[in-house]
């Protein structure tokens, strides 16, 4: 049962991701991206990381993707008009990508040859309490620094996008 769910949502994630790149219209891409986020959230859930799953949906799919969609609509960006030129790139990139992914998967498989299939529900450290504990004790420093990072991101958005004052 777990396996079926895993493969189902993994497939959705991959297909949606490819769709993001392939689609002409940015709205379609954005919506596909929402699909990716959703599937990932389900996968997290299956792994037992319920906090992350919830955060993924709320923050990523709920806030960030909504922001994306808003901006696309405000900009009124139409479908991508010009055909993709530079077929050379695609011709080289695709096989390379496939090769690369193949190598990585092979390596991972070699790395954990006897790994059992994931048994969902075995991991119990994903509750909000556990995550909170980790964030405020062992990972206190990165947690605090992240706030500076977010601040910079906000500043950046304002600096780059505001109207001229004078």
């Amino acid at each position: 049962m777990d396996a079926i769910l895993f493969f189902l949502f993994a497939a959705i994630a991959v297909v949606s991701a490819i769709n993001v790149v392939v689609q002409r219209h940015p709205i379609s891409s954005a919506l596909s991206l929402v699909g990716v986020m959703g599937s990932l959230a389900v996968l997290y859930l299956l792994l037992g990381a319920e906090f992350i799953a919830a955060a993924q949906m709320i923050v990523y799919a709920g806030a960030i993707m909504v922001l994306f969609v808003f901006v696309i609509m405000l900009l009124n960006a139409g479908a991508e008009k010009s055909p993709r030129k530079g077929w050379i790139l695609t011709a080289v990139a695709m096989p390379l990508l496939v090769l690369f992914l193949g190598m990585v998967s092979y390596i991972i498989q070699r790395g954990f040859p006897n790994a059992p299939l994931v048994v969902f529900g075995q991991f119990t450290g994903g509750s909000p309490k556990d995550v909170g504990m980790a964030l405020f004790t062992r990972y206190l420093l990165p947690f605090e620094i992240t706030s500076v990072l977010i601040l910079i991101a906000i500043i950046g958005a304002v600096v780059l996008a505001r109207k001229e004052m004078e």
Partner: peptide, 22 residues
């Protein structure tokens, strides 16, 4: 000047490293 081309070279580099060492 095309970013995608740059990313491609990047990937090529990764592939080179990985494949060669491999």
């Amino acid at each position: 000047g095309q970013v995608q081309a740059y990313a491609l070279v990047f990937l090529l580099g990764v592939g080179l490293f990985l494949g060669w060492r491999w």
